[in-house]
Amino acid sequence: MFARFLTLLGTPVVSFFTYVGEVVVLASETFASIVAQKIRWRLFLHQIVEIGLRSQLVVMITGAFTGAVFAAQTFFQFNKLGMGSAVGAVVSVSVCRELGPVLTALMVTGRVGASMSAEIGTMKVTEQIDALRALAVHPIDYLVVPRTLAMMLSMPLLVAECIGIGIAAGYFVAIFLLDVNGTYYVANMVRWTQMRDIIMGLSKAFCFALLIVFISCHKGLTSREGAVGVGKATTEAVVDSSLAVLIFNFFLTMALNVIFPAGYQ
């Protein structure tokens, strides 16, 4: 009875750690390949287009409306205290530190993570990965490395873009729609937003890039059993990456806050 209970409890725990272990192994093999094998720059550029360029619209809209709604909500509260011009500082700090990186990561997960696991998963179930291997090409070198490098470069840029647009949209809403004094708004914003806030946002972007790419590629590479398997892998890739982003975000905030403390000093 007790043994049954332990197995019941143990099985998901073991499979969870196996899963994490597999993703970590994939990550370490990828980095080993980046260091030791020749890098396929053409595929890297192709992925940059796929990840960086094709995500532009999504990231812009995410940034713009997040900044806008955040400015409006903050204004409604702060204006009661006569602190309307502090809205700029609140918007820019929170977009830099949290909203920009997290929302961009979630959008990229939906767009890029899903397509990565679907593409690699389809290759897996249609024997194309076996064909690669049979032609003496390591699937990690050919499929995972270009995607990883492209994500490592694109994500910080996308997040920076999202932050910039978010701040601009906040400014627009506050100044033109809500009649906040522009000079004070900008002055407060510049005073309270520090370089370290931006660095924090970009460091998060980099970490999220790795989470998304490894989880999605792992799901693709381990998918099985035809179209259903690929569909399942894709869904799981999106769900797992999103959860990983949200969970890691908390720990990153706690850890990075030691290095880049929030607030004015």
Partner: peptide
């Protein structure tokens, strides 16, 4: 897998379904 690459350069295989890169 990396050591097998040397073998696989010597031995070609035609898959039953072709396994073309689509």
């Amino acid at each position: 897998e990396r050591k097998l690459a040397a073998i696989r350069r010597k031995v070609g295989i035609l898959f039953q379904g072709g396994a073309l890169f689509d």
